[in-house]
């Protein structure tokens, strides 16, 4: 189940296999979003009661957004998966090794830019917030921990 859930489309796979894989992954995300939306909906009343209107409205907005998101991605997948030409076009785009390499480079560069922004925010925060500036270091620490732990994990796994 997990293997299929996190599987990436492989070069040479048929359009039918790609369609099945995409449908499986989209169905999982839609169901997950709906479960989360129902969970938040059930929680929203106690949140309104115990934590007030502001947090209650936030929870309502969140479950509405999750529900709308789940319906949208499911509808979008139904529309595009019923069009064989679109499925073929997307499969080629997703399995093309150069496109994948470009995406990986873009993701790596985005991470570096985010780190630079986080460092700058932290440095600027030092002069503005005298008491809580260390909280601004949290994103940097979290990103770096995640990056190095994933590197370690992938070195062991792959």
């Amino acid at each position: 189940m997990f293997k299929k859930l996190f599987a990436t489309p492989q070069h040479g796979m048929s359009d039918e296999d790609y369609s099945h894989l995409t449908k499986y992954q989209i169905d999982f995300v839609s169901i997950l979003f709906i479960i989360l939306a129902i969970f938040l909906f059930a929680l929203s009343l106690p949140i309104y009661y115990f934590y007030g209107h502001k947090l209650g409205s936030f929870a309502s907005g969140l479950y509405s957004g999750l529900f709308a998101g789940a319906i949208s991605i499911k509808l979008w997948s139904v529309i595009y998966l019923s069009n064989p030409h679109e499925v073929h076009r997307r499969k080629i785009k997703d399995t093309d090794e150069r496109v994948q390499q470009v995406r990986q480079r873009a993701d790596a560069l985005t991470l570096k830019i985010l780190l630079v922004i986080a460092y700058l925010t932290f440095i600027l925060g030092l002069s503005y917030f005298t008491e809580y500036y260390w909280y601004l270091a949290t994103p940097i620490v979290l990103i770096l921990i995640l990056q190095y732990s994933l590197r370690w994990l992938f070195t062991k796994l792959l």
């Binding site: 070069h11 040479g12 080629i92 785009k93 093309d96 090794e97 150069r98 496109v99 390499q101």
Partner: peptide, 22 residues
């Protein structure tokens, strides 16, 4: 070859080196 046209362009121009599979 089931790749994008941009990949063929990059390969022909020598901007991209194909993997062993490709």
């Amino acid at each position: 070859l089931e790749v994008t046209r941009q990949t063929i362009i990059s390969l022909e121009k020598g901007k991209y080196n194909a993997s062993l599979t490709l």
